[in-house]
Design a protein around this nucleic acid. Structure first.
Lengths: 327, 327
DNA sequence: CTGAAAGCGCTAACAT
DNA sequence: ATGTTAGCGCTTTCAG
């Protein structure tokens, strides 16, 4: 910095001003400084900036390296933070690196706000964090004092799935649920509500499912056995749906000819060409924008009632849904 | 820090000594300081430590959030760095955040070494980086001055695939390749070499393939048409293998009864129960250890000829390989 | 083991 | 518009 100042024939303060683009430097000076910096390929030391500054303009993000969807979120968070003038510090959770540790690492960097993707921490621990700094939890439903929650509207996701099927002409629509998995309860509600609204209360049937292919296999067998007239299924997630697809086809049932199947997540599996699964996708961009927006607003002093921001997911129509034969 | 020193009845310097576990503090004092710190729940400011210190003990890691395998590597890198006494700073590459930018962010943090996972940068740019600091490229084959390369032995991967098939009794083994994709050339070599060694030169056949399911579909059709007596296939990757599986089965060929298929990558697709693909997996732990080891060694002043560290992959036997009928 | 003091590379309030 | 001057929270050297 010294060198740059010298080369540009100004004081260090001026260089600082230029780099913070603070008021107090003429355009010509600005240009001269920047030019000098370029020649020396000077780059301000990020650590020192953070140290000296009151506000670090740093948002800490904790995520699971393993979760593909977290990857999408991280991507969107970078973009959203950038727009808001914040930097992002990433801290991954892994088997050898638990959540408290990942969070602590971020605190040691003195980030101003925390964005936690699908954290395992209990509500109490989250509330403690929130007491110290703006904390927003993404993709997990929790109620903890002071923490903001941004998540997808799981109930609406199933509503969309059901409405899509209804619009195709289906009536006997079954939901294979996720048991006690996060989001499962809401998806059940969404399913039931949508069915009722469509005037098909008598066809409501929630089959116990789960998160794995095997769960899908079991559920498909049960449906074939107990309700062979079923024409459509909305599964808890893509994996479960894939297990069902496989079982249905092995049983000689044409999909989507005789049976329509909808998954949930729009994971990489759903896009495989021989799977080609109609599914419900989350909106990482929107989730990220809201999360960053909320953290930043809190930092700017805005106070909110602790509530949830709920984002509608969206239907991705592929090849496993069609009009029923009877229609 | 001041407060901790006061509370423990020592000088600030002592607190610093304790936290760096530098020599010059008795065990009792050490304990007292730590206790005082705990009560005040004091945590040293990471930024300040880095600033004040000569060595930052920081390793920068650039990776793609989208790549599932990078996730595994990141996980292993954390562990390896930890063992070596280094911290890790993550910087993700995403559509809105290109590689130069991700790298620059790390440099601004003044990390001491760079670990790049499958970078796109051209050799020249990498060499420039390497001139400034230890730089190791993981999972991409490049030759650039001063940069260390750590990667899987793709040639050996196909050797293992072929030997596995040979040991089952296969002779007519085809390789569906990856064209100009990274690693494809080596896999071809590994295939051919292994076939020759097994005395089956006359059965060597490399079918043009690709990275997608559709490529697998096309290749499978061609094989069925042009060489129906083929009993086994080693595909370029899992996706391609899955496309083949699907096509073969649709054509009425039993897998693995009439045809064995081996994939490559051990991706999440391979593990799906209805896919259950025998495949070749990389060793993220070993790759990470070597990468960190190399960076640290360079930082410790060890000089190496710029060469590659090559890690053998490993065969994951699942359900798509079996002895051929004729055997 | 202590206490003082310089410095890391910036920011930011204040004076010119 | 530009220069001066303290810090930021720690490390590190050095004489006690």
């Amino acid at each position: 910095m010294e060198d740059v100042a010298a080369k540009a024939g100004v004081s260090r303060a001026l260089v600082s001003i230029v780099y913070r683009d603070a008021p107090g430097a003429s355009d010509t000076t600005r240009a001269r400084v920047l030019e000098a910096a370029a020649e020396l390929d000077y780059r301000p030391d990020h650590r020192a900036r953070l140290l000296g500054r009151q506000r670090t303009k740093l948002l800490g993000v904790v995520y699971g390296v393993r979760h593909a969807f977290h990857g999408d979120l991280v991507e969107a968070l970078y973009a959203a933070a950038d727009l808001a003038g914040y930097d992002v510090a990433l801290s991954a959770v892994a088997p050898t690196r638990d959540e408290p540790r990942a969070i602590q690492a971020l605190l040691d960097y003195r980030c101003e706000g925390l964005i936690l993707l699908g954290p395992d921490q209990r509500a109490k621990a989250l509330a403690e964090l929130a007491a110290a700094m703006p904390t927003v939890v993404v993709a997990r439903k929790v109620t903890a004092d002071g923490v903001d929650v941004v998540r997808s509207d799981d109930s609406d996701g199933l509503r969309q799935a059901v409405e899509h099927l209804v619009s195709l002409g289906h009536r006997r629509i079954v939901h294979v649920d996720g048991g006690r998995a996060p989001g499962a309860a809401e998806r059940r509600v969404g399913y039931k509500t949508a069915m009722r609204r469509a005037g098909m209360s008598e066809h409501i049937w929630v089959v116990g499912g789960g998160l794995t292919e095997d769960d899908g296999v079991a559920a498909a067998k049960r449906i074939l056995r107990e309700a062979p007239r079923t024409t459509a299924v909305a599964a808890f997630n893509d994996k479960c749906a894939i297990g069902m697809l496989d079982t249905l086809r092995k049983a000689g049932r044409d999909v989507p000819g005789e049976m329509s199947v909808v998954g949930y997540d729009d994971s990489n599996l759903a896009g495989l060409s021989h799977v080609d699964l109609t599914t419900i996708g989350q909106d990482p961009k929107r989730l990220a924008e809201l999360a960053v927006g909320r953290a930043v607003a809190r930092l700017d002093g805005d106070v909110f009632a602790d509530d949830e921001l709920v984002v509608p997911p969206s239907l991705v129509v592929r090849g496993t849904t069609a009009a029923p034969k009877e229609a």
